[in-house]
Design a protein around this nucleic acid. Structure first.
Length: 257
DNA sequence: ATGGCTTATTGTATAAGA
């Protein structure tokens, strides 16, 4: 089983990249964030033509998440239960006995902003919901754009970013709290190159200079940890014409019953 | 230096992202 997550920054613009990537890489499951489109515009037919089905919730302009899968998706759930939110940021489905949660965690904008408070509230709600979800579904993956660089080595310049959004102590504590539920950062289960990032600013030649952050993650539950075989970041789509500012993060696992 | 790009909007400048 191959899983991937990719913030595409508008599926309207990035659909050709997504279709090409699916055909070249043949993942079993691809989670998308920032589709930025209403469900009526979601390209179900184009995906079906290359062997994929999908579940999506979206809205105009902002947010929007999808799970694209070669296998049937069941028990599809939208957003975080019991957390009132008019932003479409979470979609969940069961695929081959695994609970797959695709999340677009809020950016937070700046630590002194209302959006930062929303981010922390949102992360608290996610944590509490996943705690109960894990008790029902021990085989669980949480894939998405977390908008958190968990450690200094996940940031190109920790001193320049000190205390800022994406790396602030409260955000990192929220990430740790997810790990304490019995989740594991699959990328760090394996040896990785220094300065491995999943996002680079469009400005100031950020990608060419590798001024990036690792903020897109695939967390797996205790029950799935030993099944993980390989994790990597595929930088190839970031080199294309008119790329997303994020690039896919990939996890390969043994098949599960 | 609060800039630098990119996306979307029933736009012609603004908001938001990270």
């Amino acid at each position: 089983m191959k899983f991937a997550t990719w913030n595409v920054n508008s599926l309207n613009v990035r659909l050709p990249h997504v279709l090409d990537w699916l055909q070249s890489n043949q993942p079993d499951v691809l989670c998308l964030q920032e589709t930025k489109q209403e469900d009526l515009k979601f390209p179900y037919a184009e995906l079906q033509a290359i062997g994929y089905q999908a579940a999506h919730i979206g809205q105009k302009t902002y947010n929007g998440v999808a799970i694209i899968s070669r296998h049937p998706l069941t028990d599809i759930q939208h957003n975080i239960p019991q957390f009132a939110d008019d932003q479409q940021r979470v979609i969940t489905a069961t695929i081959k006995g695994m609970r797959v949660v695709c999340a677009y965690i809020p950016n937070g904008q700046a630590v002194d902003s209302d959006k930062y408070q929303y981010k922390l509230r949102w992360l608290g709600a996610l944590h509490d919901w996943l705690k109960s979800e894990l008790s029902v579904h021990p085989n669980l993956l949480l894939l998405g754009d977390y908008n958190i660089a968990p450690e200094d080595r996940d940031c190109h310049d920790p001193m320049a970013w000190l205390g800022q959004v994406l790396v602030s102590p409260l955000e990192r504590a929220a990430f740790q709290a997810l790990l304490e539920l019995g989740l594991h950062d699959s990328f760090r289960l394996f040896e990785q190159a220094d300065k491995s990032f999943s996002w680079w600013d469009y400005r100031m030649m950020g990608f060419r200079r590798n001024l990036g952050m690792r903020i897109d993650h695939i967390l797996v539950s205790d029950a799935l940890k030993s099944a993980c075989l390989r994790a990597h970041i595929d930088k190839a789509p970031r080199r294309l014409e008119r790329p997303s500012d994020h690039t896919p993060v990939v996890l390969e696992m043994h098949s599960q019953a």
